[in-house]
Computed example of a mutant assay.
Amino acid sequence: MTDRRVDLGRDLARIALFAALIVVLGTVTVPLPGGVPITAQTLGVMLAGTVLGARRAPLAVLLVLVLAAIGLPVLAGGRGGLGVFAGPTAGYLLGWVVGSVVIGLIAHRARITWWRTALAAVVGGIIVVYAFGIPVQALVLGVELAPTALSSLAFLPGDLLKAAAATALTLALRRAYPPAFGPRLAQRAPARAA
């Protein structure tokens, strides 16, 4: 029973840490016309998925969204309140939850490798998030889907850089501190060179 409590405590600490990371990365914001800013928060979502996995990562994202829903200014540009879930970014926020699950499923399927981590960040952190975000943005703004998707290409270079950063940071953390990934993956840590 004690081991279970310790594991639960560690899981909660990791979830809270990544929720805080997502919030802090929201302070890096570039506003754009169309209501969806360029933000570093998706890097936090990618890192949550690659490090925490499919079960814990969405809990970190949901914690951020709950804090936003009760009015705390935890989203990009200091936004919060229920209104953000009816605005043009609402689909992207939902995409964060689903994307973090997809990232975790891909990245943690087997031993963590650079190509699996990069694939996870691109598929879950970009493709899935866009798949939820673009249609909702088009609907809320009353714009056709094709022009909205085309305008979203402005975000792609930055998101690819975030996926590369998430890959590099995940692999560095994996080498430096395998327990960050939880007990199951810590046991599969790569052997260190003598």
Rank of each mutant, 00 (worst) to 15 (best):
T113Q: 06
A76C: 10
A191G: 14
R4V: 01
A168R: 09
T29H: 08
G49N: 03
R55Q: 11
I112V: 14
A194M: 14
L59A: 14
A146H: 12
A110W: 14
L139N: 03
V97Y: 06
T117Q: 01
A194Y: 12
L171H: 07
L160H: 02
G77R: 10
D159N: 07
A172P: 02
L141D: 15
Q187T: 11
V143C: 01
G44A: 12
A193F: 14
A120S: 03
A68R: 01
I15C: 08
R5L: 15
G26C: 13
T29V: 15
D159H: 00
L169R: 01
I15K: 06
I126C: 03
V6K: 14
L25E: 05
F181N: 11
Q41K: 06
L59V: 10
W96D: 08
L82W: 11
T167V: 01
V24F: 12
A189Q: 11
G158K: 03
R192G: 13
A180K: 10
P31W: 10
L169Y: 01
A163C: 02
G9F: 08
W115G: 00
G83H: 07
A86H: 12
A54S: 15
G95M: 03
L65Q: 09
T170F: 05
E144Y: 08
R55W: 06
L67H: 06
G53T: 03
L25F: 06
I15Y: 02
G124V: 00
A138K: 12
P183F: 08
V6H: 06
L185A: 09
A165I: 04
T113K: 04
G95L: 08
L62V: 13
Y92C: 07
I112T: 10
P31V: 07
G87P: 06
Y177M: 08
I103Q: 00
P37S: 09
A13V: 11
A176Q: 12
V61K: 05
Q41H: 06
L8T: 13
M46V: 01
A191H: 12
A118F: 13
T170M: 10
V128R: 01
R184E: 15
D11W: 01
A20Y: 01
A90C: 10
V122G: 00
H108I: 00
T117C: 05
Q137W: 13
I103K: 00
L169M: 14
G124T: 07
F181R: 10
P33W: 08
V97E: 09
R188G: 05
V30F: 13
T167H: 04
V140W: 03
I126M: 09
G133H: 04
L59P: 09
L145T: 12
L8M: 14
L59G: 07
L62R: 09
L65P: 06
A168W: 09
G49Q: 02
G91Y: 07
G78V: 05
G78H: 02
V143F: 10
V98P: 04
V101K: 07
V128C: 05
L17F: 10
L43C: 02
R192T: 14
R56L: 13
R79F: 02
